[in-house]
């Protein structure tokens, strides 16, 4: 299994990683080895095996709809690189927000 440089560049872009050309070369080689190792699994005949949705043999873990204590705003913001005491601050972003 060999990955192309453009595959690695795309994955890096999606992961917001700024890789230099040299790093893309290195990653292309290393990622190809990892993907190649995992692709060994393709040699197994899984036609009769149901897809696994979760490794644990547990289902239906729920909690009741009962409010619990939240953090204080100060606690919530304490590890943020930048905040104004109320909100997290990030460089200006424009465009839509909310769930896609």
């Amino acid at each position: 299994m060999t990955l192309a440089r453009k595959d690695v560049a795309k994955v890096a872009m999606l992961a917001r990683l700024a890789l230099s050309d040299a790093e893309i070369d290195t990653m292309t080689g290393e990622l190809s080895k990892i993907v190649g190792f995992v692709s060994l699994l393709e040699e197994i005949d899984t036609a009769a095996v149901a897809p696994l949705a979760h490794p644990l043999d547990t289902q239906n873990a729920f909690r009741d709809d009962v409010p619990a204590a939240s953090l204080t705003t100060a606690e919530a913001l304490q590890s943020a690189p930048r905040h104004d005491g109320e909100c997290f601050l990030v460089p200006a972003v424009l465009g839509e927000s909310g769930a896609a």
Binding site: A68, S70, L71, T73, A76
Partner: peptide, 27 residues
Amino acid sequence: QTKTKLFCGCSTTFGAPPNTQVCPVCL
């Protein structure tokens, strides 16, 4: 229309001051 969020016990009440209904899960 639930009292709490989907995966944690933080309140879903609209209009609360910013970042007062947050916890390690939803952060």
